[in-house]
Computed example of a mutant assay.
Amino acid sequence: MLRINKLTKRFGANTAVDAATLDVDKPCMIGIIGRSGAGKSTLLRMLNRLEETTEGTITFEGRDVTALKGKDKRAWQAECAMIFQQFNLVPRLDVVSNVLHGTLNQRSTLSTMFNLFPMSDIHRAIDILDRLGIAEHAPKRAEALSGGQQQRVAIARALMQDPKIILADEPIASLDPMNAQVVMQALRRIHEEDGRTVIANLHTLDTARRYCDRVVGMRDGRIVFDGLPEQLTTGVAREIYGAGADFSEAATSTEIDTLEAASTANPVKEAV
């Protein structure tokens, strides 16, 4: 279905992604892990064609995605929707209008300028918001919502594009544990219920294990691990992150259960 073949991206003398190869044969949920600067975000941006490739190819259902231009490239970007860490919403616009912006590439310039949308699209946007548990916030300004709610609005906007692939670049990095869990559960349901492929850059191992069917580890721009969640042992994680024996998963966890367990095992003493 999706083949990434020796994908490389160089910025001057720096190689951000180095000959990355990945085959996705069927819809699944993939977590990409690795330390900051490992090339995770650049890889997703190349998949969405926000970044041009230096070498290599991306093929989806027989099409060479790296060769697409103009209208065909924009159509691919709708088919391969992107969700960002910082939400990228229009703060002063109401929630439902932000969601409807997922259809802008299908609208005329005039309707876009005057924010005119068919009633069928408005109903669909509200249905998607309802599915994500935030329909009651549809008339509010986006800036009035919490971070977790704003991220779900961003997911709803992506779903308005009716994509086959959803790329999520650190979707929970700026969220507290409770909201992180809600967002990851939403992405998992979208994969399971819609049969869409979800590829998410994640910064915690327990999150990747809990929600993903497959985990890919990147280090210095290269894919150094590609396997099942249960194969992601602490030893493998040390290799991916280039960490020593003192590497602790709990220290970087966003999973509520892990945090509670760590807190119980190492209670903070009150100052005298």
Rank of each mutant, 00 (worst) to 15 (best):
residue 209 R to L: 01
residue 236 V to C: 07
residue 201 N to H: 08
residue 164 K to F: 12
residue 206 D to R: 09
residue 185 Q to S: 14
residue 201 N to L: 05
residue 200 A to F: 07
residue 168 A to S: 08
residue 195 G to P: 07
residue 164 K to T: 12
residue 224 V to C: 09
residue 197 T to F: 07
residue 192 E to L: 15
residue 165 I to K: 10
residue 222 R to G: 15
residue 143 E to W: 12
residue 220 D to T: 14
residue 230 E to L: 06
residue 172 I to V: 15
residue 165 I to Y: 07
residue 180 A to S: 10
residue 211 Y to L: 04
residue 199 I to Q: 11
residue 216 V to A: 07
residue 155 I to N: 02
residue 222 R to V: 13
residue 219 R to S: 08
residue 154 A to N: 09
residue 198 V to Y: 05
residue 167 L to D: 08
residue 228 L to F: 13
residue 213 D to K: 08
residue 187 L to V: 02
residue 218 M to F: 10
residue 172 I to E: 04
residue 155 I to D: 00
residue 152 R to Y: 12
residue 216 V to F: 06
residue 193 E to G: 06
residue 207 T to G: 05
residue 201 N to Q: 04
residue 192 E to D: 14
residue 211 Y to G: 00
residue 177 P to N: 12
residue 168 A to C: 05
residue 191 H to S: 15
residue 188 R to I: 01
residue 219 R to M: 00
residue 144 A to S: 11
residue 197 T to K: 13
residue 209 R to C: 02
residue 210 R to I: 08
residue 208 A to T: 07
residue 203 H to K: 02
residue 201 N to D: 06
residue 159 L to C: 09
residue 205 L to I: 15
residue 165 I to W: 11
residue 213 D to P: 13
residue 144 A to D: 01
residue 188 R to V: 01
residue 216 V to N: 08
residue 190 I to P: 08
residue 215 V to M: 00
residue 235 G to L: 05
residue 229 P to Q: 02
residue 196 R to N: 06
residue 212 C to K: 13
residue 214 R to K: 00
residue 192 E to N: 14
residue 153 V to A: 04
residue 226 D to H: 04
residue 233 T to R: 03
residue 161 Q to Y: 08
residue 160 M to A: 01
residue 228 L to H: 14
residue 232 L to G: 00
residue 216 V to W: 07
residue 151 Q to M: 07
residue 195 G to Q: 10
residue 212 C to Q: 09
residue 207 T to P: 03
residue 234 T to Q: 12
residue 158 A to L: 10
residue 213 D to L: 04
residue 172 I to M: 11
residue 226 D to C: 05
residue 196 R to A: 04
residue 170 E to H: 03
residue 230 E to A: 11
residue 191 H to N: 15
residue 162 D to Y: 12
residue 176 D to M: 06
residue 152 R to M: 09
residue 224 V to L: 04
residue 150 Q to R: 15
residue 180 A to I: 01
residue 186 A to C: 08
residue 210 R to A: 09
residue 175 L to E: 02
residue 179 N to L: 14
residue 198 V to E: 05
residue 190 I to T: 06
residue 198 V to R: 03
residue 218 M to H: 14
residue 162 D to C: 13
residue 143 E to V: 14
residue 155 I to A: 03
residue 208 A to M: 05
residue 223 I to F: 13
residue 187 L to Q: 03
residue 214 R to T: 01
residue 179 N to S: 15
residue 171 P to Y: 11
residue 197 T to S: 10
residue 146 S to T: 01
residue 213 D to R: 14
residue 144 A to R: 03
residue 150 Q to T: 10
residue 218 M to I: 05
residue 208 A to C: 04
residue 157 R to M: 01
residue 236 V to E: 08
residue 236 V to N: 06
residue 235 G to D: 13
residue 229 P to K: 02
residue 232 L to N: 02
residue 230 E to R: 07
residue 203 H to T: 00
residue 221 G to I: 05
residue 217 G to N: 04
residue 147 G to S: 10
residue 183 V to A: 00
residue 155 I to L: 00
residue 205 L to E: 03
residue 199 I to L: 12
residue 157 R to V: 02
residue 148 G to C: 05
residue 226 D to A: 02
residue 177 P to Q: 11
residue 161 Q to S: 06
residue 169 D to I: 00
residue 223 I to P: 10
residue 204 T to E: 15
residue 233 T to Y: 09
residue 162 D to S: 15
residue 208 A to F: 12
residue 207 T to W: 02
residue 148 G to T: 06
residue 206 D to C: 09
residue 188 R to S: 05
